[in-house]
């Protein structure tokens, strides 16, 4: 994994035209603002849907509540786009950052968890005669989803406090958390 991380940082380089634009005074703060707006859309849509599965607003049909999800996906897309801009500009600050590793881990959990929902619970929850109370499995998935996205926010917000410094000595951990 160390070699892969080093290869990633070297390949991205941070000297592309995009990186040059990102280094202008307004680009980075603007991209960050969009990243926070995307976060709010994601939590507002996906988080609210999770809360509905858990029983908040139980008189709202679950299928009706699901119509908010495309806006959560829009927020997620905004954040993938703006997040990529940050990585393309300062690859070493993310690829070697343990907080970023945790952020990716929680994103993966959130993604697999959502896939599990659509594979196992979608039909039952969305059937025309589905009860207003979600089945237990869907509630567990919703709780995991909320925790995963809160974990993603935490990993993102703590990035700046775990900036990688230069490596000293032999690195034995699974992932590099310092700049070689």
């Amino acid at each position: 994994m160390h070699d892969f991380q080093i290869w990633l940082v070297t390949t991205i380089g941070g000297r592309s035209a995009i990186a040059e634009v990102m280094r202008t005074a307004w680009a980075w703060p603007l991209a960050e603002s969009l990243h926070f707006l995307g976060l709010c859309l994601l939590i507002g849509a996906v988080g609210s849907f999770d809360l509905r599965l858990l029983g908040v607003g139980r008189r709202i049909p679950i299928a009706a509540m699901h119509r908010f999800i495309p806006w959560g996906l829009l927020g997620f897309a905004i954040n993938i786009a703006t997040g990529s801009l940050f990585i393309l500009t300062e690859p070493d600050q993310y690829i070697y950052n343990p907080s970023f590793h945790f952020k990716l881990l929680f994103m993966t959990i959130g993604g697999l968890n959502a896939a599990t929902f659509y594979l196992t619970s979608y039909r039952r929850v969305f059937a025309p005669d589905a009860p207003l109370d979600a089945p237990r499995r869907a509630k567990v998935i919703a709780a995991i989803s909320l925790c995963a996205w809160i974990g993603v926010i935490t990993g993102g917000r703590l990035l700046t406090f775990y900036r990688p410094s230069a490596c000293e000595g032999q690195q034995t951990a699974l992932l590099l958390t310092c700049a070689p």
Binding site: C40, L41, G44, G47, S48, M65, R67, F68, W71, W149
Partner: peptide, 22 residues
């Protein structure tokens, strides 16, 4: 922020026609 702004925005979007069956 995610929950306060997110839920407020969801309410706004519902008023503006998103998820009309809610």
């Amino acid at each position: 922020m995610g929950f306060a702004v997110g839920i407020s925005a969801a309410l706004d979007l519902r008023i503006l026609g998103v998820a009309p069956n809610v």
